[in-house]
Computed example of a mutant assay.
Amino acid sequence: MPAPERIPPGSLTAVELLDLLSAGELTVRGRVREASNAVLFCTVALDGEEAECVYKPVAGEQPLWDFPDGTLAQREVAAYEVSQATGWDLVPPTVLRDGPYGQGMVQQWIDGDPSASLLALVDDEEPAEGWKAVGLAQVGDGRTALLVHADDIRLRRLAVLDAVINNGDRKGGHLLPSADGRLYAIDHGVTFNVDDKLRTLLWGWAGEPLPAEALDVLARLESALAADAPLATRLAELLTPAEVSALRERVAALRKASRHPEPSGQWPAIPWPPV
C-alpha cells in the first residue's frame, strides 16, 4: 500500500479538512512536553491523504477547580465553532472524536512563522508607533520593561473573540502567525465559564471603541445564538445551558457597550506564565 500523501496547508477546503480530522486514522507521533495537559502530536490519514494534527484526550486533562472535569476538549471545539461564526477563522479546524486514548479534541497542526513579531518587551515608557502597551513586566535583576503587542487587526479580532468566549488563558505562545499572513490561535480549554475569567496579553485596546467590523460580527453572533439556531444547537452539545446563556449575555453586553473590555480588577488580568 503506498504511503499517504502529506497535505500542504490550505490545500483542502474546510469541509474536507474537517472530514479528514473526524474520520481519518490517528497515529501518535510524539508528545508536546511543555503542556500541562496531555497534548499529542499526530498524523491523521484518510483515502491516501495525510495531515498533521494535535490530539488532546479527555483522559489526559488535569482537573481544574473552576471547570467541570472532562470538559476542556469540548470547550476547544466550542471555541472553533464560535470562531467560524465570526467569519474571522482564527481557530484551526477542530473536532471532537475518539482516538487511541479515548475521546478528545483533534485540531489541525499549524506551523507558526518564527520571523513574525507580535509581542515584545521594550525599555521605553511608551510604545512605539504600531504597538500597544499591555503593562510593566519584571525581567530580572530588579529591572522592569514594558510589555507591548502589535497594533494588528488580526490581534484585535482575536481580542474580541477572547472577550466573547471568556478566555481565561490567552498567552503569547498561543498565537501562531503563519507564513501566508494568517493568524491562528490555539489552546481554548479554559473558556466559556459563566463567571468573568478574561485573562489575556491583548489588553492594548482596553476601553477603546470597538471597530465597526467587530460590531457587525457581534450582531451576527447574537442572531446565530438565538434559540434553535444552528450555532446555538451545536453549542448546546458542548456546553451547559448556563454557559450558553452566559455567552449570549456577553455578546449582548459587548455590543451594547461598543468598547473593548477592561480588566475587572478582581484577579490578575494577565495569565501566568505569560508565554
Rank of each mutant, 00 (worst) to 15 (best):
V148H: 08
D195A: 13
H149Q: 02
T200S: 15
D141M: 06
L201G: 02
D162N: 15
A120R: 09
R156P: 00
A159M: 05
D141W: 13
G168V: 06
E126N: 11
K171D: 02
L121F: 10
E129H: 09
H149I: 02
A133G: 14
V194E: 14
R170S: 05
V194D: 12
G189P: 07
A229G: 05
A128Q: 12
V148C: 14
G189D: 03
L175S: 03
V122G: 02
D216E: 14
H149W: 08
V122R: 10
E213S: 13
F192T: 08
P211A: 14
A229H: 03
V190E: 08
A219S: 15
D195K: 15
A120M: 04
G130I: 04
R143G: 06
A120F: 00
V164K: 01
L210V: 12
G172F: 06
G142F: 02
V190W: 01
L215M: 09
H149G: 04
L210G: 01
G130Q: 00
A214D: 04
A219F: 12
E126R: 15
A227V: 12
D162T: 06
H188N: 13
L183Y: 13
A212K: 07
A227M: 11
P211N: 10
G173D: 08
A120S: 15
L121R: 08
A206K: 04
A128I: 03
P177G: 13
G135E: 10
K197F: 09
G181W: 09
E125C: 06
A227W: 11
Q138P: 10
Y184Q: 06
Q138H: 13
L146G: 00
A185V: 09
L183S: 11
L202H: 05
A137E: 15
N167F: 04
D169T: 06
P177I: 03
A206V: 09
D196T: 04
V148R: 01
L146S: 01
L136W: 15
L147T: 02
A159N: 11
E222I: 11
E126A: 14
I186M: 11
V217K: 07
D169L: 12
A212I: 07
R143F: 12
G130M: 03
S178W: 06
G172N: 11
A145G: 10
A150H: 01
T200P: 02
R170L: 09
D187S: 08
L158I: 07
E213Q: 13
E208V: 04
I165P: 00
H188R: 12
D216K: 11
R220F: 06
A229N: 00
G173A: 05
T200I: 08
I186L: 09
E208A: 15
V122A: 10
I186N: 03
V160C: 13
G189C: 02
W131F: 03
E213D: 14
V122Q: 13
S178M: 14
L210F: 03
L201P: 00
R182W: 07
A133I: 09
D152F: 06
